[in-house]
Design a protein around this nucleic acid. Structure first.
Lengths: 289, 289
DNA sequence: TTGTATGCGTTATCAT
DNA sequence: ATGATAACGCATACAA
């Protein structure tokens, strides 16, 4: 038989197999967006772990203006994937939770959780990371004034980092000012523009800018330099994520390392474990920033 | 019937459907690597086009040290995917061609072609782009000496860009020197190191460095600055790809735009067209750099 | 241990 | 036009 298999190049048919086993060997990875190094690294980690687990990886991100929920439920119920790794990121998209619950599929949430539904999760301890950064600015660098530049206000990462920002200001007796808080879109260009308009107001001894990702931090640095403001001489800028851009700014960026590819890998590992053993208790892995 | 479908949340089973139709609605995207913005943008374009065509996208990249060919043939013959978009990039991996031919699946090659096998292709006119850049340096900037910093010597993009480099030197009467050619690995860090060691030798009036991607160009600029060499004062540096880093260097990088996400999108479109109509004549789309 | 038959959920074919 | 049934390729339960 083995000889015949080789001779005829026999390969079991995936559909017939799936029909009996109710398994495809495919795990889905659903991301809110595919732009930038953050998502790219998650895919890379997920791919590598999927290969390790002998699974295939189906990647998908909703197009802007598309009804992600109806697509997701349709897609999930056709049985093509054995489970899903889902990242939502936007706190406005609360309907997704109910949709996922209705799928009756193993789900691993990335960087988020949904109530009332059994699912595994991989989260990054962002609060701790953001607190560490803020503490660093206040305690080691004697920060007197810190500007916060976030992504969209409804973004879950922005919220976590903003909360740590507020908490640290309070606990260290620094004054909070609404005019020190800006919500952008995580891009270099918008941060660059913001810096052009505001950097003169921002500068001062022991003044810092805490950007919610590295790309915006890089944009702010470039904007400051364009306005002849010296970084870190007249103002300090720090970022978040530790993407490759953090090594490319001049000076190199102080940032918070987020294990992006590990997130993807861990999520896929958790998912495959649960597919193999549906009875396993819920797991929630927190990765350190 | 329609009412019952809604009431019971009926969804056709993907396996049973695939068994009859011999179609899964899944297209595969096989990349040599998932590192960096280049591949990330290809995935983004492919995803967006796949959604448009109501297909799902399976992404995969071989792990280092893995036998990609046996995996590919096994995978392709199980019938899970309706077709493949394949990027190889390394001219050493010539065995892949025969493997793909044996699959008897619709194939779209990215940035490459394989002989003796019918397949569609999406290529970037790199030669033209690299020639344009070289001509710009020679004609508009009066370049007298140009250093070439490529990726791996077996990389297909490196070869195309290197060929244009050599051709332009020849046609414009500049002297070629083996010591002006370096093959690295496309990363910032290795280019940074290379610059630290060589930048003093490189500087001079009308001296330029032509890096085969933006990341290495950024690394070279940073290395030069670290050695107190002014860019572009004492030496000019140009890149390739027009990734986001090109906007982040200071000064902004002169580079060649490569429509990465368009590549991914075009490839998926071509693939789906062929899946729907196997008789369609071979297509080969060249995108301008 | 070896061989045979049934069912998985569809689509397609054929008889009504 | 409508309804019954075979076939897709495999895994599994059962008979030999």
């Amino acid at each position: 038989v083995e000889a015949a298999i080789r001779e005829l190049h026999y390969r079991p048919n995936a559909f017939a197999r799936g029909l009996m086993l109710r398994k495809s060997g495919i795990v889905g990875l659903v991301l809110p967006d595919l732009h930038g190094e953050f998502y790219s690294e998650i895919i890379r980690g997920a791919n590598s772990q999927a290969r390790e687990m002998r699974r295939n990886l189906l990647v998908s991100s909703a197009l802007p203006g598309e009804n992600a929920e109806s697509w997701l439920s349709d897609f999930g119920q056709r049985g093509l994937v054995d489970g899903l790794v889902v990242m939502v990121s936007d706190t406005m998209a609360s309907g997704i939770g109910a949709t996922l619950a209705g799928l009756n599929l193993p789900i691993v949430m990335l960087d988020d959780e949904i109530d009332g539904v059994e699912h595994d999760a991989v989260v990054i301890d962002q609060r701790q990371g953001a607190l560490a950064m803020m503490r660093h600015l206040v305690e080691n660098r004697g920060a007197k004034n810190i500007v916060f530049v976030g992504g969209p206000e409804t973004n879950i990462d922005t919220q976590a980092r903003y909360a740590a920002y507020c908490a640290t200001l309070k606990s260290s007796g620094l004054k909070f000012s609404k005019s020190n808080v800006h919500f952008l879109d995580f891009t270099y260009d918008s941060a660059y523009k913001l810096a052009l308009e505001n950097v003169n107001r921002w500068t001062g001894p022991h003044h810092f800018i805490f950007a919610a990702n590295d790309e915006m931090a890089a944009g702010i640095i470039a904007g400051a330099i364009a306005k002849n403001v010296s970084v870190p001489g007249e103002i300090g800028v720090v970022g978040f994520d530790d993407t490759r851009v953090a090594r490319m700014t001049n000076p190199r960026l102080t940032t918070v390392r987020v294990p992006m590819s590990r997130m993807g890998a861990q999520a896929v590992e958790l998912l495959c474990q649960r597919i193999d053993d549906p009875e396993r208790p819920e797991a929630r892995i927190a990765l350190e920033a």
